[in-house]
Design a protein around this nucleic acid. Structure first.
Lengths: 132, 132
DNA sequence: CCTTGAACTTCCAGTTACTGGAAGCTTTAT
DNA sequence: ATAAAGCTTCCAGTAACTGGAAGTTCAAGG
C-alpha cells in the first residue's frame, strides 16, 4: 500500500513516516514507480510507534521495544529484561495518569472556579510531594 | 529555595526549569543576589509539568492545564470544558498504556524468543487495527 | 489521447522542546 | 583565603518532527 494509506491506518502523518524511515525505524519496499510500498507488518510497526510516542516514550525507547519482535538474533533473556524494565515504567505512567484523571474529575465535579490558593486540586495536579 | 532544590523536588533538570521560565510557564521570585527563588507553589507547577510532559502532553497543553488553577480570571465553564477534553484524552492514553502493559507482560511470561512471524505479540504491540 | 488534480518523490529550511558548554559571579566549606 | 559547588546569562547543538518548494506519477473526466 502507498504512504497515504499507511498514514491513515497508523494515525501518523506521511511526513513522520518518511522521517521514521530516514532514521532507520522501518524499511518499506519500493514499487517500480519509486513509491514506498507498505506491508501490514510495516503498518503494525507504525501504529506501535504512534502509540508509544504519544505515551511519552522516546524514539530510542521505541526502537528498543520494536526490536522485541523485529530482531530474530535477539536472545530471549535480553528481550525479557528489556520488557521488564519497560513494564516498570509503564506501571509508573499508569499510576500518574490515573492520579491526573482523578484530579481532573474532581475539578469537573466539585470545583466552582473560585480558585482559592489552598484548593485541594493543586496537590492532585502536581502529585504527591515530599513535604519540605 | 534555589533552583537546585526545586530541581530535586520536581524531578526536572535546572536547565529545563530555566527554559520553562523563558517561555512563560512560571515566574519565580528573585533573591537579592540574583538567584531564582522558588516557592512551594512554583514546585507544584514544575512537578505538574514534569508529569504531564512525560505522559505525552505538549507544552502548550500543559500551559492550558496549568491555567486550570493558575488563572483567577477564568470562567468555571471554561475550566470544566477544558478539563473534560483532557479527561477524554487521558482515558484513551490509559487504555493504550494498559494494552501495552498486557502485551509486554505476555511477552515476559509466555514467549521464548523464537520470534515467529505470526507471534500474537505483534498485534498487541501495535494495538487493534481495522483489518484492511 | 490529453489534461488536470491529487498523491507521490526528494531536499532543504524552520519549529519545538530541550541540552551542553563557556564565561563569570556568589556561596559554602576547609 | 582559596577551592569547589552552585548560581547567572548567552549561544550553539540536538531530537523529533513539520512546512514548503520543485518535480514525477497516477486516476479520472472530456
Amino acid at each position: 500500500m502507498n504512504i497515504g494509506t499507511a498514514s491513515e491506518k497508523s494515525g501518523l502523518p506521511a511526513k513522520t513516516i518518511r522521517y521514521y524511515e530516514d532514521i532507520g525505524l522501518l524499511r518499506p519496499d519500493r514499487a517500480d514507480n519509486g513509491y514506498r510500498d507498505y506491508s501490514m507488518s510495516d503498518v503494525h510497526r507504525l501504529r506501535f510507534l504512534q502509540r508509544s510516542r504519544s505515551l511519552g516514550f522516546s524514539v530510542e525507547e521505541c526502537r528498543q521495544l520494536l526490536s522485541l519482535y523485529g530482531d530474530k538474533e535477539r536472545e530471549s533473556a535480553d528481550v525479557k529484561a528489556l520488557a521488564e524494565t519497560k513494564l516498570t515504567e509503564i506501571d509508573r505512567k499508569l499510576a500518574e495518569l490515573t492520579e491526573l484523571r482523578n484530579t481532573l474529575r474532581h475539578l469537573v465535579h466539585n470545583c466552582h472556579g473560585d480558585n482559592r490558593p489552598d484548593c485541594p486540586i493543586i496537590d492532585g495536579l502536581s502529585g504527591r510531594l515530599q513535604t519540605q
